[in-house]
Design a protein around this nucleic acid. Structure first.
Lengths: 140, 140
DNA sequence: GTCATACGTTAGTATGGTACTAACATATTT
DNA sequence: AAATATGTTAGTACCATACTAACGTATGAC
């Protein structure tokens, strides 16, 4: 499977991550929850979700919004890239909260292959500053 | 003076760098040259230049397009950030040409303060992979 | 069973960034 | 004077982002 970062916009990226977080909870994500979490109105969120659907990253079934395999792979890449860059920033002296905010503005523009190389060169950290695992599910 | 990266769009960034390169030549930059260099039509380039003018980064005098002090400070920041990230990528194993292409997609979104910290943490390199100096004119 | 609330959806509109063509104005060069 | 280059204006277009208003559907309260 192709790892498809770089094919999403900033808000699509944000939506994918919200979706991934919600999907880990008890119930599947619903539009109202997504829009609330993203701080945008339902029609705007729907618009983003429909674009993600066209990109085969999301499926909808009876009001539930679900990540596809492709969507999950993209989330996995995005999280990996985000955490690598965040770790780089924090170990360089950027305060953790700043690092997170700053990195989310550009992480989705970095190829996973390059983030992977950067990760190795900073010692393949296993944890990001928030204590989340740094790992990549699929590799090509 | 405030260093104002993060206040430009991708094309404004590109335009500033083209402007900086042209300004180092014999003659001041002209619209036709800028649009040729950027690979876009004159009206599109003019539109970008007008936005940069509103941001006080550019001035126009009799068809000449000139960077203001603020514009030059922004270019200086942008080049610094670009070269730091490019160096990081290349020393991590990303081929030089790829690194340049990839980094220009997101360098303008990184705060100079963070790039500065990353620079120190990778040993304050003096040269980027293209042999250009890595330095910052103004610091706050 | 009806009413209210929540939710999803559609339509319409708006703004900003990027991009074009066509047309025109102005200046320089031949 | 005509041709060429350059800059400018107007009009249009597309995408991403965002909103409101309105409508349909469903679910739970009473």
């Amino acid at each position: 499977m192709t790892i498809n970062t770089n094919e999403v916009t900033k808000k699509e990226r944000d939506c994918l991550l919200v979706l991934s977080r919600l999907q880990d909870g008890e119930f599947p994500a619903r539009l109202s929850e997504i829009s609330r979490d993203m701080g945008i109105k339902a029609p705007t969120a729907l618009n983003i979700i429909e674009r993600l659907e066209e990109k085969s990253m999301v499926e909808r079934k009876k009001g539930m919004v679900l990540l596809t395999k492709e969507g999950e792979a993209t989330v996995s890449s995005l999280l990996f890239i985000h955490r690598v860059m965040e770790t780089l920033f924090v170990t360089s002296g950027v305060p953790t909260d700043n690092a997170c905010e700053e990195v989310e503005k550009f992480d989705y523009l970095i190829p996973v292959s390059s983030a992977s190389k950067v990760s190795k060169s900073i010692g393949s950290p296993k944890m990001c500053p928030h204590g989340e695992a740094i790992e990549l599910e699929e590799r090509q």
